[in-house]
Design a protein around this nucleic acid. Structure first.
Length: 426
DNA sequence: TCTGGGGTCCTAGGACCC
DNA sequence: TCTGGGGTCCTAGGACCC
């Protein structure tokens, strides 16, 4: 059977782990640049804010409700996620880490045994990491997803339907809630009077294939109980690597654009090397803020095909700089630039250019740079002077401490007075 | 004033080959 | 005047996911 373990309101729950005072209070977490709401605790969801609402539009409502607002702290969420996945690994040899807050597990046993395992998973994650999770179990990934949705609404956060319960559950599941069916397909299905999962499984394969492509057909089979999406235990290397950020302020100067370009290109190159890859194509783009309709708008990208694969940061940065020099037009208020690396291949297998003599010392330099930056922080060594507090850098005004990854943010536990007396000073 | 940042897969259609 | 039948590769666009 396939189990989906899904963290409840993951980012909001992470913020609560070291802040027990936030229990029962609405907690929301913002996107980069403190822009939109990307996560809400249960109490915050009850305020009925529109999904993805920009903070400034709902600030008043949040204040009235006494909500606590955080900037995204991906370092914290990533570290807690890693700890959770480590726990889940101990329950099965077959685990797919599907996203930062979800994993599929292959489990075996009778329904009672499965329920036992699900409870142990839930309790262990909560007591060892402090994050509440839901567990849904079904014969396929798609069914496990449906079960986990229902688990979120159960008191115990666990849902393992028996074969006789499934037909009713499918009748109660709107097609739009099915994994793999989004807004477009959802609307299309509704317009054809296909409203629930139970309606969908009665459709002809050929009709579904024609209207929803092969992916839709596999979803249909999964709903009928035939596994069609396999567990991906080792994530395949990325085929494209994107690094892009909005600026906290409108940027007008080329100097700032170049600085951001070097930073984003370095970040992309780091990700590339982390999976032992090199890229053959570099794409770079700039854009103004489309929400400011009074501003003159400008958006353009540029693609360069390289004659040999690259992963060396200084080379990638210089390509990006060359592109940005051509893309930049004075007189615009820029909001965002992006660097995208594609045609990615394993680093050492690439077909070389006849005239390119690879300098193997570059690899050694990058390995050392990556090690140093991993250990001492991202910008310890970088390619171009980065002025601390540059105007364009991301806004994160409500960032919580790095409780688990930074010595200076480590929480301090104070023992009670009686204990100190017993033990003496110090 | 303030509106995120990543990814995947599939298909149709055009250009080209013999 | 009549104008086939097979392929491949690439790209743009559209759907989806977190």
């Amino acid at each position: 059977m396939t189990a989906l373990v899904d963290c409840n309101s993951f980012y909001a729950s992470c913020e609560r782990v070291f802040r027990p005072d936030l229990k029962d209070r609405p907690v929301v977490v913002l996107s980069n640049n403190d822009g939109c709401i990307v996560a809400m605790s249960r109490e915050a969801k009850e305020l009925n804010l529109p999904r993805g609402a920009p903070l400034f539009k709902v600030q008043k409502l949040l204040d009235q409700a006494g909500a606590v607002v955080f900037s995204s702290n991906y370092t914290l969420y990533g570290d807690l996620s890693r700890r959770i996945m480590e726990i889940l690994e101990s329950f099965t040899p077959h685990l797919e880490v599907y996203s930062i807050d979800e994993a599929f597990l292959e489990l075996r046993g009778s329904l009672e045994e499965l329920e036992d395992q699900a409870c142990t998973i839930r309790d262990r994650v909560f007591s060892w990491v402090g994050i509440p999770v839901s567990v849904g179990i079904g014969e396929t990934k798609t069914l496990a997803k449906i079960a986990s949705h229902r688990a979120k609404k159960n008191a115990g956060n666990i849902c393992i339907p028996t074969p006789s319960q499934w037909p009713d559950i499918l009748k109660e599941t709107d097609v739009k809630e099915i994994w793999g069916i989004g807004r477009q397909y959802g609307q299309k299905l509704h317009s054809k009077e296909i409203h629930t999962a139970a309606d969908l499984i009665l459709q002809e394969d050929s009709w579904v294939k024609k209207n929803m492509t092969l992916v839709g057909l596999k979803t249909l089979w999964e709903l009928r109980g035939k596994p069609s999406f396999t567990l991906e235990e080792t994530p395949p290397p990325k085929q494209g690597i994107m690094s892009s950020r909005s600026f906290s302020f409108p940027v007008t100067e080329m100097e700032d654009i170049m600085e951001a370009g070097a930073d984003y290109a370095s970040r992309a190159a780091e990700k590339l090397r982390a999976q032992n890859s090199a890229c053959r194509v570099i794409h770079c783009s700039v854009m103004t803020n489309p929400f400011r309709e009074s501003d003159r708008q400008y958006a353009r990208g540029m693609t360069e095909q390289l004659s040999f694969p690259l992963s060396y940061t200084p080379s990638i940065v210089s390509v990006v700089h060359r592109q940005l020099e051509k893309l930049y037009r004075p007189g615009f208020r820029y909001k965002k630039i992006a660097v995208f690396l594609s045609e990615i291949e394993p680093a050492r297998e690439g077909q070389l250019d006849l005239f390119y003599k690879k300098d193997s010392r570059n690899d050694a330099v990058m390995e050392a740079v990556d090690r140093i930056n991993n250990r001492y922080g991202r910008h310890s060594l970088h390619c171009m002077p980065l002025r601390p507090g540059s105007r364009w850098q991301m806004k994160r005004e409500r960032l919580s401490p790095l409780y688990t990854t930074s010595w200076k943010d480590l929480p301090v536990v104070r023992c009670g007075a009686p204990l100190l007396k017993q033990r003496g000073p110090g």
